[in-house]
Amino acid sequence: MSEQSIPEFRKTSYFNPYVGGVLLGLVLLAAFYISGRGLGASGAVKSAVVAGVETIAPSHAENTKFYSDYADAHPNGPLKSWLVFEMLGVLIGGFISGAIHGRLKLQVEHSPKITSRKRLIFALAGGILFGIGSQLGRGCTSGSALSGMAVLSMGGFISMIFIFGTAYALAYFVRKLWI
């Protein structure tokens, strides 16, 4: 990569952020109006994990309190959930937007200062942490922070403050990953 190359995400055009924000707010409002609940993401991944465990190790799932409680709370099976269907939509909606704006490309996006390999290792580590944190915090950036803030919930604001606050606090120490 040349010395003064323009990063990939600067070459393509995105929505005006405020327009994007208003549209995202309207989608969120629609979710509340129709289904009485906000958006989410990590819950769908959890459904996939539970479904996976139930398929691969059914006796383990039956004998472990967490999975049996989850099965009791979701009598239609873990995958027949609102969030799973919503996240399938997200994949499709994201794909449509990527196709329209010419951004479909198999690639590893990373700062020129680090290798792809390093980027992938940190992506995995970040994913693991986000996985644990979203379960402990009962929702991720969309489910807890965004949807929670829209309904002015205490949980949503505390979530938001600690997610963004921690990321800002650590940003300096890992700046080599990004800038």
């Binding site: 958006l39 989410g40 993401a41 990590s42 991944v45 996240m87 997200v90 994949l91 499709i92 909606g93 994201g94 794909f95 937007s97 990527g98 951004r103 479909l104 490309k105 198999l106 690639q107 590893v108 996006e109 990373h110 980027r119 992938l120 940190f122 992506a123 995995l124 580590a125 970040g126 994913g127 693991i128 942490l129 986000f130 996985g131 644990i132 944190g133 979203s134 379960q135 402990l136 915090g137 009962r138 991720c140 950036t141 969309s142 505390i158 979530s159 938001m160 403050i161 600690f162 997610i163 963004f164 606050g165 921690t166 990321a167 606090a169 650590l170 940003a171 890992v174 990953l177 990004w178």
Partner: peptide
């Protein structure tokens, strides 16, 4: 949970919802 997620955010560069849109357009990370 929020603190752990914050650490995951700065290391991984995504949050769960956004990572799915990345998957949708072919981002391997």
């Amino acid at each position: 949970g929020g603190m752990i997620m914050g650490a995951g955010f700065i290391l991984g560069g995504f949050c769960p919802g956004t990572s799915f849109t990345g998957v949708a357009i072919g981002k391997i990370d």
